[in-house]
């Protein structure tokens, strides 16, 4: 058993974040009022497009190997899709939420 030299795999840190975030998600989503379930879906859609960071990495790769061109191509299309989703998702959510009004007295 070596003690001092033990290094925790970064995967375990990621897994910890993931598991805790599932719990956070569980409690946060249960507190969402049912009247806003449609905006909830459109906004979760928009934020899951944070996959855009992967698309940016792929499209920005240096032309070092034969695979780089492919990666750029895939990244380019992924970036378009993700941007449709980001802009579309947030804006349509904003449009919907603007419609929810209280009784005017």
């Amino acid at each position: 058993m070596e003690h001092a030299a033990q290094v925790v795999d970064p995967f375990i840190f990621r897994l910890s974040i993931f598991v805790l975030a599932v719990f956070v998600g569980y409690f946060v989503v249960w507190s969402v009022t049912p009247a806003l379930h449609t905006p909830l879906m459109s906004v979760t859609n928009a934020i899951s497009s944070v996959i855009v960071v992967g698309a940016l990495l792929a499209v920005g790769v240096g032309m070092v190997s034969s695979g780089s061109g492919w990666a750029r191509g895939f990244g380019f299309v992924a970036l378009i899709f993700a941007c449709v989703n980001i802009f579309g998702g947030f804006l349509v959510t904003q449009r919907m939420l603007a419609m929810y009004k209280k009784k005017s007295k």
């Binding site: 992967g54 698309a55 792929a58 190997s65 695979g67 990666a71 899709f81 993700a82």
Partner: peptide, 17 residues
Amino acid sequence: MAAVLVAAGAFYAPEAF
């Protein structure tokens, strides 16, 4: 689809990731 394409990008250019 974006997830598939990003994974494909990572597969063909792993050094960038």
